[in-house]
Amino acid sequence: MKFRAKIIDVGCLNHFTRVVNTVSRLTKACVLRLTCDHLYFVLSGRVATGGVGMWCELSQGNFFDEFQLEGVSADANEIFLEVAPENLSRALKTAQNAKSVKIKLTKKSCPCLTLAAELPSLSSVSRVVTHDIPVDVIPRRLWHDFREPQMPDFDVSIYLPPLKTMKSVVDRMKNLSNYLVLEANLNGEMNLKIDTDLVSVTTHFKELGNPPWGDDGSQSSSPTHRDPDLMTEARVDIRKLQQFLTGQQVNPSRAMCNIVHRRILHLIFLHEDVSLQYFIPAVA
């Protein structure tokens, strides 16, 4: 089982750092799944029991100049590692001006992701800063727990408003209640609401648009039989939504939200080479 990769392009390094920073703000621990073509940061939360779930997918060819992987066996050419993304984020911060960054799986006193950053130097001798990030290797028998989540059979899918605007609204509402209702319909309308014994506040968004999900089976089809004006809602822990909005450094080209009525809020951020899905369970 071997893994080594190298980043030379500073733009790719900064982009990868932003992705890791985003993940580190969403969870203290997650699984890093490595394949020949992709990297995945996976948080396999049990949404049914109140846990959040996350699936972040990166195409390795858009980030790494070199990428070599030998998985656990020929028929399972993958590696699953449990890692604290904050440790990886801290290591990458020291490498922002690096000439190159190498990442490899090593065996020290425990399995580690070793990150070696070659820093600029005024002399002919290069300076290399090395970080050993402890990881746990996930045995193959547990891999099925960290596969890509199924697209939920949602009732409404809608594009999100500008994220800075949405974050500002949620930040203010957090001071009034622990819970927020997000509701939307197929006319491109979305409301953020809180309702307590003392105050009721609603922020309205209109003309957001609804994503055109295909009918070819590759993605769930938008439920066209619904009344376009009928609102679908999910009541969620406002702190979990705020945490997701606060941590964003991916700058998505498209941001969408799928709602399973009173069950799940499924947030999707798409960039040209990164996709991030986040699942927040609804509360009664």
Rank of each mutant, 00 (worst) to 15 (best):
F146H: 09
V170Q: 09
P149L: 03
P162F: 01
I158E: 00
S126D: 10
M173N: 12
S124H: 11
P120L: 10
K174T: 14
L160V: 04
E148M: 12
V135I: 11
N187E: 15
R141P: 00
V129F: 09
R127H: 07
F146R: 00
N187K: 15
S177F: 03
K174R: 15
R140P: 05
D171L: 15
N187M: 14
V137E: 08
S123N: 05
S124K: 14
V169G: 00
N175G: 06
P134E: 01
I158S: 02
W143R: 09
L182V: 15
I158L: 04
N178I: 08
T165M: 08
P162A: 13
F154D: 04
V181R: 07
D171G: 10
V156D: 07
V169S: 12
W143Y: 15
I133G: 00
R147Q: 13
E118S: 14
L186P: 01
M166V: 12
L142Y: 09
E189D: 08
L142A: 13
V125P: 00
V137F: 02
F154P: 01
M173R: 05
S121P: 04
R141L: 09
R172I: 01
R147C: 07
D145M: 09
D145L: 15
L186R: 06
H144S: 13
D136P: 00
F146Y: 15
S126L: 04
L186V: 00
D136S: 13
